[in-house]
Amino acid sequence: MIKLKSITLALSLLSCFFIGSIQAQDNPQPPELSFAFEVLVEVADPTVVGLLPNGTRRIVDILGGSFEGPGIQGRVVPGGADWQIIREDGFTDIDARYTLETDSGDLIYVSNVGIRHAPPDVISRLNAGEVVDQSQIYFRAIPKFETSAPELEWLMKSIFVATGERYPNGVVIRFWRVH
């Protein structure tokens, strides 16, 4: 048994040597997140499609809004929506798709897919249209952007994450670039 352990140890030391300095840091450097822009989305009352095997499908139409960040600003083009599934376990699957138009007329297609969850009482108050403490809600997503504007191509060359906050008549989404 001891022999086996020492062989294992020798092997793991050997593999450390082969892998070099890149392996197994105790505290790896996390990626940095830098603020890209925030979107204020005005939304309609949800259309409830009904109960499906994976939860309740509801569609929240996007009526408009605005967005702004360093070097970028504009409006939310009316006509997008968030196709949500409210799952039995209290999670909401978020699948929002909409278009942004910058002040200079460039269009950005946004697809933002993620999750939202909170303690049951917070969720029921949120669904009842009340203002709730946003720190109790986990509302995070992964956005993908598409644009043909050359000055906005950075939107298609990085990973971004999104944080969201839900208010009775709107949603605040902040996009962060991963560095």
Partner: peptide, 16 residues
């Protein structure tokens, strides 16, 4: 700007 107008309207809503 209509942009800021919408923004304020919504934020006031958010503040209840």
């Amino acid at each position: 700007s209509a942009l800021s107008f919408n923004r304020r309207d919504m934020l006031l809503g958010a503040a209840g």
